[in-house]
Design a binder for these strands. Structure first.
Length: 172
DNA sequence: TCCAATATTATGC
DNA sequence: GCATAATATTGGA
């Protein structure tokens, strides 16, 4: 929507599931990308990054590894949602309140932010979520427990839910 | 400013 | 179960 933040630093996070790419602005973590098969980063000079970014990155790495391992992260880095619209920020904020191991539906979420009929738009907001996994957009299912969709691919959504214990192959 | 697209949902067959 | 209409928000022509 608006102008992108100025200096963004990219850092890689090595996980058993691949290498994630985290991007930081001056305010905090602003984007987290799923592993891409190709080697993207690896050129960021460690000395060129601000100290705060390093501590954020440490938090991010721990949180991400915890989430991938199937348990709730104890602490999250500051998240920078500045690039989203107000509506989207409301959605992402609401997403952050979903407890680990729980799921919700697009309709419920829409009600929670005061726009009960904006379910479709809400789907778009979830898709625009720049920080998957840490902002649990994967815990949102359809009204009849259908999977819906996922930015990084439905495989990831199923995998994440499965590790949290929220997804049994044949769900009720 | 208008138009098309969307990670939905409720209804009807 | 599948097709259809209704709905809010976004991004681009």
């Amino acid at each position: 929507m608006e102008k992108p933040t100025k200096c963004v630093h990219e850092q890689e996070i090595i996980t058993p599931d691949g290498n994630f790419l985290a991007r930081y602005s001056e305010k905090g973590l602003c984007e987290l990308a799923f592993p891409t098969a190709r080697a993207t980063a690896g050129k960021a000079s460690p000395d060129a990054i601000p100290g705060c970014v390093r501590s954020w990155h440490d938090l991010t790495r721990k949180a991400l590894l915890a989430a991938l391992a199937g348990h709730a992260p104890e602490r999250l880095p500051p998240l920078d949602f500045a690039r989203g619209t107000v509506f989207q920020q409301s959605v992402w904020k609401a997403l952050g309140r979903i407890r680990h191991g729980r799921t919700t539906s697009y309709g419920e979420l829409a009600r929670e932010i005061g726009r009960p009929k904006a379910v479709r738009a809400l789907g778009g907001a979830c898709g625009a979520n720049p920080i998957p996994v840490l902002v649990p957009c994967h815990r949102v299912l359809g009204a009849h427990n259908s999977l819906g969709g996922f930015s990084g691919g439905l495989d990831w959504k199923r995998k994440l839910l499965s590790r949290e214990g929220s997804w049994t192959e044949a769900h009720p």
